[in-house]
C-alpha cells in the first residue's frame, strides 16, 4: 500500500529525514518511535502534503500513485488521513459542515453519490458513539473551545467518517489522560481492518499497550535504525534509545 524509499527531506536547508525506507502493507499497523527531534512529525507532514518541506531525494508510492506529486486534498481523496498532533481550531467553520464537505469531496472522487444533510447526520450518528464524542460538539466550530481530549477524539471521529485507507496518527496519545487514551485507543482499534493500514507516530510505549502494532520502528536522527515487533517498544521503554543508537553505529 505505502512504500517509502530512500526519503530525504529538508526544512529550511536543514536535512531532517536522511533516507527513510518503510513498507506498509494493507491491514498492517506500524508504530514509529523516536526521541524528540528525530523527524517523526516531519515524516507525517510530508506524507500528508504539508508545505514547507523540500524532498531532495527518494520516492513515496501509495497505491501506485506518486504521493509526493499530489496536493493534500488529492491525497485525502486517495485515502490518506492525518490525525493531527495539534488539531487546529477553526472559528466560524462548523464541525459537521466541514466534515460533510470533506466526506462529499471524497465520495465524489470515489464516484459515489454525495450525501445530503439528512443522510449525513444519519451516517455520522454511530461514528459519534465510537469515540464517545458529545453530539453537540458537531454543531460547534471545528475544535474551538474543545478540551485536549475532545480534540483528539474529534480526529478519530473524522477518521471514522472519512474511512481512509492509510491513517497516520501523529502523537495521538499526547496530552491525554488514561481514560481519554482508552477511549481514543478503542476508537482506533474498532477502525482496524484488513484493508486499512495505520502508521502511529509516538513518543511513548504507553499508547502501544492499547493499540498493538504489528511492527515497531525506531527513528533516530532522520533514519530508521531498527525495526522489530511490539517487544521492541517494551525494550525501548525500559532502556531508552541510546543502546539502539550504539548498536546502529
Amino acid at each position: 500500500m505505502l512504500n517509502i524509499s530512500n526519503l530525504h527531506v529538508k526544512v529550511e536547508d536543514k536535512e531532517i529525514l536522511k533516507g527513510i525506507n518503510l513498507k506498509v502493507n494493507a491491514g498492517e499497523v506500524h508504530a514509529i518511535m523516536g526521541p524528540n527531534g528525530s523527524g517523526k512529525s516531519t515524516l507525517s507532514h510530508v506524507l500528508s502534503g504539508r508545505s514547507g518541506y523540500e524532498v531532495t531525494e527518494g520516492t513515496v508510492d501509495f497505491l501506485d500513485n506518486n504521493l509526493l506529486e499530489l496536493s493534500p486534498e488529492e491525497r485525502a481523496h486517495l485515502g490518506v488521513f492525518l490525525a493531527f498532533q495539534y488539531p487546529v481550531e477553526i472559528p466560524g467553520v462548523n464541525n459537521a459542515y466541514m466534515l460533510k464537505a470533506a466526506l462529499n469531496a471524497i465520495r465524489t472522487y470515489r464516484g459515489e453519490e454525495e450525501l445530503d444533510a439528512m443522510d449525513f447526520m444519519a451516517f455520522v450518528k454511530d461514528k459519534v458513539k465510537l469515540v464517545q464524542l458529545k453530539e453537540d460538539l458537531l454543531s460547534r466550530s471545528v475544535n474551538e473551545g474543545f478540551s485536549g481530549g475532545e480534540k483528539k477524539r474529534n480526529e478519530i471521529f473524522q477518521m471514522a467518517v472519512l474511512e481512509p485507507k492509510l491513517a497516520i496518527l501523529d502523537e495521538t496519545d499526547s496530552g491525554l489522560d488514561i481514560d481519554a487514551l482508552k477511549i481514543v485507543a478503542d476508537g482506533v482499534n474498532a477502525l482496524r481492518s484488513p484493508e486499512r493500514s495505520m502508521v502511529m507516530i509516538t513518543h511513548y510505549q504507553r499508547l502501544l499497550d492499547y493499540i498493538e502494532p504489528d511492527f515497531v520502528h525506531v527513528l533516530v536522527d532522520g533514519k530508521i535504525i531498527k525495526s522489530g515487533d511490539k517487544k521492541l517498544a517494551l525494550e525501548l521503554e525500559k532502556r531508552g534509545y541510546d543502546w539502539v543508537r550504539e548498536e546502529a553505529a
Binding site: 502534503g49 504539508r50 508545505s51 496536493s71 477553526i90 467553520v93 470533506a102 469531496a105 472519512l162
Partner: peptide
C-alpha cells in the same frame, strides 16, 4: 487552517 481543511479532502 488551510492545510487542516485540505488534509480532509476539501479543495
Amino acid at each position: 487552517e488551510l492545510f487542516y481543511l485540505r488534509s480532509r479532502g476539501i479543495s
